[in-house]
Design a protein around this nucleic acid. Structure first.
Lengths: 337, 337
DNA sequence: ACTTGGCACTCGGGAACACAGAGTGCTAGA
DNA sequence: TCTAGCACTCTGTGTTCCCGAGTGCCAAGT
């Protein structure tokens, strides 16, 4: 049904439309791409493509525009990810290398990605669930308060101030800290609940109320942060583009953690580092936008996801190249630290 | 030059224009506000107001629109801050009370303010400079690495992983921690550099390289975070409004920490908790927007600033009321913790 | 000295209209 | 199967026209 030339025509339409933002007609196609055939022939092919739903015309007697289905075919079969230039790679590397802590890595990554793609970049913080405890710290603030600091192997630090039910002196706090660390050091966060389950029983009875309080806060920390933090950057890049769904909706979605989460999508367990492309109506919310995302993290344990969000009319090969490259570099940085 | 009636006319113009977003004419004014005079009289007053530069007409034979100068007069002399309703107050209180840590307080505050004012809310993190050290923690990660955690009295936690120049065993780390805390506990952050200056000399010579490394990172942390973190929310509220300067510029400014900082302005030392209103061209960048801001923090020590950013055509009394109220509540919350 | 009604004037914005140009679909011929 | 030609259909643009809101000014009234 779709011979090679028709596919070439579709590719040409997508490329032209992406670069010009104007419906593309048969004549312009024949001129710009050397397809070796006349506009009339192209018109026939276009009619076929439209019949199949890959392209559409905004109104009679205007050029054609790719549909979501057309972009999908383009991404799947007609294009290949465009690698970054050497200069860009070096820029990424040096920019990310300057990060001082996890927060900084994430902030730099999201800005970098926004600048590179000229789209809105979205980065999820490394997830807690798959990371392990590196250290638990209990810092006495005064005799009724301690600060709980949880440090993970991904460099993430969670802290909470805990109001104790009774006065507990520092040596007992220190003891508890030692016990906690002995118990949890190096363990996966998801195992923490079961590991601390019998802890109160192994401690002096007079400490139990305090321990119970501390443990409940600890568990709460793990649970609450389970819905992960997500940041974005590059909202200014939305100003130019026009969204079918309206700019307001997009901005609202960006500030809604949950929606953003859904848009980035789940890391598919089989091929975690694969690029996910969701085009237009394939998205759960925000039908008018496309999302290019991928997991990142060192090797086998994927930490979280990052990607960009933009209009369906985007340069997929370049965007995919940038997302993939940034994901690799940030994985590398995180693995090193 | 400007008698009471002319001022009343200006006030009416501002109020009408803010609520309708359309240039307001003499007839409509005479009808809606009971000014007891005829449209012709109002026209004369309007001519005088325009002469003085308080209002302007977009084109001949359209109604009048306030100028920045007009809004300025309105804010300074013709309006008073509108207090929030009881329901709103309770909503603020309960919403902010649920915060678990500093991050959470800031996030909740900025969202709350955005929702309350239907503008873009901006909140600066409590500044480090005026806060004091509550605790310094050194956590050995392995024999060549420690994590430095700095906890301030404002609940802020800074952490850094430090690569040591040589292997240092845990007891020596523990000792150093004790020394650091003895030295710094309760001290203002700005005093830290001088306080630690002679520290290496007071320690065994073999520890000095490690100590020097740790101290340099500590000082770096203080300096680097000196340019404060700023967050915003409610960008979606920009979608409706029209900015003379273009939406893109506003969005860019929002993501540029430095610009945002300048927009929020400095806390004036004499009356730190006063509301600052910058209208249109009074702003350093972003001439087309207005900023309503104020300092927050408990009592005499102001911690940072918060405020909202919107079009010059904004409801100043309501916005000012919301900003003031939120600043008070968040100050209260921070003082309690 | 202000205020008011009347009146002519100005301009923006919407409706109606024509028109050029791009693009298409179709058909007949190579 | 491709190509050339042709008639057709739109959109977008430019033009014109006109209504109406709103103004400025003047002369009369209080």
């Amino acid at each position: 049904m779709l011979d090679d030339r028709k596919l070439a025509v579709l590719r040409a339409i997508v490329e032209d439309y992406v670069s010009t933002n104007e419906p593309v007609g048969s004549k312009a196609l024949a001129e710009r791409h050397n397809l070796k055939v006349s506009p009339a022939t192209i018109r026939n092919d276009m009619a076929a493509l439209e019949e199949e739903g890959y392209i559409t015309q905004p109104h009679t007697s205007a050029g054609r525009v790719p549909t979501d289905k057309g972009y999908r075919l383009f991404v799947d079969r007609l294009s290949q990810v465009k690698p970054l230039s050497g200069a860009e790679r070096r820029a990424i590397e040096t920019f990310l290398a300057g990060a001082v802590d996890l927060d900084d890595v994430v902030t730099r990554t999201v800005r970098l990605l926004a600048q590179l793609t000229r789209q809105v970049a979205v980065v999820q913080y490394p997830t807690l669930t798959r990371s392990t405890v590196r250290h638990v710290e209990l810092v006495p603030l005064n005799d009724r308060r301690v600060m709980l600091v949880l440090i993970t192997n991904t460099g993430r630090v969670e802290q909470r101030v805990i109001e104790l039910p009774e006065v507990v002196d520092e040596t007992r706090i220190a003891h508890l800290r030692a016990v906690l660390n002995a118990c949890l050091d190096g363990c996966g966060l998801s195992n923490v609940p079961e590991l601390v389950a019998d802890l109160p029983e192994r401690l002096p009875v007079e400490d139990r109320p305090a321990v119970a309080t501390i443990l409940s806060v600890l568990l709460e920390t793990l649970v609450e942060r389970h819905d992960e933090k997500i940041v974005f950057a590059g909202a200014a890049n939305l100003a130019g583009a026009d969204f079918s769904t309206g700019l307001r909706d997009v901005l609202e979605a960006l500030e809604e953690q949950v929606v953003l989460m859904r848009l980035l999508g789940e890391t598919t367990s089989d091929t975690p580092s694969a690029l996910t492309v969701r085009i237009g109506s394939e998205n759960p919310y925000l039908r008018g936008t496309s999302v290019v995302a991928t997991g990142y993290g060192s090797g086998d344990n994927q930490l979280a996801r990052l990607g960009v969000l933009g209009p369906t009319r985007m340069d997929y090969p370049v965007t995919m190249g940038a997302v993939r490259a940034v994901a690799r570099y940030v994985s590398q940085i995180l693995a090193a630290s």
